[in-house]
């Protein structure tokens, strides 16, 4: 079978290239933000071993910066930016992108409250003295710190899952069309969030906790990736064609070397050795995890657009 088409629309032919690095960066930063929101909320509620380090307390501010950069990338990806306010006029329950737009609206205030409530008291007091108008909100925010920590875990989880569902809910792209993409992006997001936190000057207990947690998350991520591959391998013709993108196709080398070998297996081994020898986790494994997390999203975004329903196989011609 040979098929030719006279269609040559830009961004569509010869292969779909509508989403590029802007979307990959947004998904990567969204994952980190989700991870930091979940981990900083969880550590505020349940991590009682020692007084939180200054870096841990200031990380929610970093979240605000990262999500803003991510949103800017998303804004750049829009072809009709003047209409971006249209996202907030309706809520479309069947549209993952609509969910994402509204979730981002939740992430901002929750992150801002968390950031404020975790800021050291004397810094907060300095700000409140200069801007007394903020005092009622500022004091209430600190009193409700544990509630915001819980809300941070919930909204971070929704954000993390959404980044995967955005792609997973596209039945037209067999490489993406899996319910496992939600959990995969969530686990990967928490893992890259932990890795991002490990780049800062946390105290020893926090580093050990995050290092071992990241090791467990990487194992979970490898398990989900295995299930996702098995799901595609057990699927129909379109799924098998999609699977070839990472089994002999153009994304094979990048996927297996950057994501699996360097981004997951190597840091997992390093983190396990650190845990076994009671060493304090360094930044090397964290950097590999971050690189792997970005590569995963980059490959997902690009490879998914190359997958589709084989026309000749499903056209009913035979």
């Amino acid at each position: 079978m040979e098929a030719t088409s006279t269609r040559a629309n830009p961004l569509v032919d010869p292969g779909l290239t509508i989403w590029n690095q802007d979307v990959a960066i947004y998904l990567f930063l969204g994952g980190i933000v989700a991870g930091v929101m979940i981990l900083s909320g969880a550590m505020r509620l349940w991590y009682k071993q020692e007084e939180p380090s200054l870096a841990l307390r200031l990380l929610p501010w970093g979240n605000l910066a990262l999500i803003s950069i991510g949103m800017f990338c998303l804004f750049l990806d829009l072809e009709n930016r003047f209409n971006s306010w249209r996202f907030y006029l309706v809520f479309k329950a069947y549209s993952p992108m609509s969910w994402g737009a509204w979730v981002l609206l939740l992430v901002y205030p929750v992150s801002a409250h968390m950031a404020w409530a975790e800021t050291p008291a004397h810094w907060r007091e300095t700000v409140l003295r200069k801007v007394p108008l903020l005092r009622p909100w500022g004091e209430w925010s600190v009193r409700a710190r544990r509630n915001f920590a819980a809300l941070s875990i919930v909204s971070g989880s929704v954000l993390g899952i959404y980044t995967g569902i955005l792609l997973g809910a596209m039945p037209s792209r067999p490489f993406w069309n899996s319910s496992l993409l939600g959990p995969l992006f969530l686990v990967s997001g928490v893992s890259t969030g932990a890795a991002f936190m490990l780049l800062f000057r946390l105290n020893q207990g926090e580093r050990r906790f995050l290092g071992f947690l990241d090791f467990l998350l990487i194992l979970a991520e490898l398990g989900i990736i295995a299930l996702w591959i098995i799901g595609m391998a057990a699927g129909g013709e379109a799924s098998l064609q999609a699977l070839k993108l990472i089994f002999g196709g153009p994304y094979t080398a990048a996927f297996w070397s950057l994501v699996i070998a360097l981004g997951l297996v190597t840091p997992a081994i390093a983190e396990f050795i650190e845990y076994k020898h009671r060493a304090i986790p360094g930044r090397g494994a964290a950097l590999l995890v971050l690189g792997g997390g970005f590569a995963l999203r980059w490959i997902m975004v690009y490879a998914g657009q190359h997958s589709g329903w084989a026309s000749e196989a499903s056209a009913g011609l035979f």
Binding site: L11, V12, E79
Partner: peptide, 21 residues
């Protein structure tokens, strides 16, 4: 057109690649 943001989610969703920007 007046409601379209150009997010291209519809293009990703269309199995026929019938849409363009």
């Amino acid at each position: 057109g007046s409601k379209c943001t150009g997010c291209k989610a519809c293009m990703a969703a269309c199995p026929y690649d019938a849409r363009y920007v």
